[in-house]
């Protein structure tokens, strides 16, 4: 599959710092980055490397202290809370480490929660079908395994047909086998819908699935590797 060249996100000198008592913590220090439509990107880094901060800023949950972040023609770094909410609502699909499903709602209703507020959503059952859980539509989270819960979370994230799927340690709470099934579901979404997928993880093995691997260290990009031969999730070992 050829990698399209049009940037969906473009970060220039992106920095984020937090005051911490009398000192200041620099979570990101001058990141320059482009993410393209249809890409599968893994951001790797140890704890404290700034990967979560970067994901939060990309997902419109946080704003940079300096630098710019463009999403297509929209300057996310200049957006207020309201505009960021609209951005998330329209363009971003989130997958969390701990699934964050609403316990009292069925799988289908968890997906409906998102499709109901989106402009051009897919059918909720179609989203479940894409993760192979259409027969679990009426199950409640407590009736599903961890891996299944995470796949419902993926279905919920893609239900709105997002421009970008942001996954925060999607296998962090799962064993290897289940983790592979979840990653396979993400890969399938990427393949079938052509959505930009960004996974942040400290698990280097996942990097083998990506088109591009960005390594963060101490708030800066340490290295960017192109992967011309991405591996299927089922072959990954960690």
């Amino acid at each position: 599959m050829s990698v399209p060249r049009r940037p969906l996100f473009e970060a220039k000198q992106l920095s984020k710092s937090y005051p911490m008592g009398d000192s200041v913590v620099h979570a990101l220090r001058g990141i320059d980055l482009q993410l393209h439509e249809g890409e599968f990107v893994v951001i790797l880094g140890a704890s404290g490397s700034g990967k979560s901060t970067l994901l939060n800023i990309l997902g419109g949950l946080d704003t940079p202290t300096s630098g710019t972040l463009m999403f297509r023609d929209q300057d996310l770094s200049a957006c207020d809370e309201h505009a960021l909410t609209e951005f998330r609502r329209e363009h971003v699909g989130f997958v969390f480490q701990f699934y964050n499903l609403i316990s009292g709602l069925t799988s289908l209703d968890n997906v409906r929660l998102v499709t109901e507020i989106a402009n051009a959503p897919m059918e909720p059952i179609e989203a479940l079908r894409l993760v192979g859980l259409e027969n679990r539509a009426t199950h409640y989270p407590a009736q599903l395994s961890g891996g299944e819960q995470q796949r419902v979370a993926i279905a919920r994230a893609i239900g709105k047909n997002p421009s970008v799927l942001l996954c925060d340690e999607p296998t962090g709470a799962l064993d290897v086998k289940t983790g592979a099934i979840v990653l396979d579901a993400i890969a399938r979404i990427h393949r079938e819908l052509g959505t930009l997928v960004v996974i942040i993880t400290h698990n280097a093995a996942i990097a083998n699935m990506a088109n591009r691997v960005i390594r963060l260290s101490d708030g800066q990009i340490a290295r960017i590797d192109e992967n011309l031969n991405p591996q299927p999730a089922s072959t990954l070992q960690w």
Binding site: E86, R89, E90, F96, I102, S103, R156, K160
Partner: peptide, 12 residues
């Protein structure tokens, strides 16, 4: 749950 919904794009 509410925070999750906010992240998923629910307005304030």
């Amino acid at each position: 749950d509410l925070a999750t919904l906010r992240v998923l794009g629910y307005r304030q």
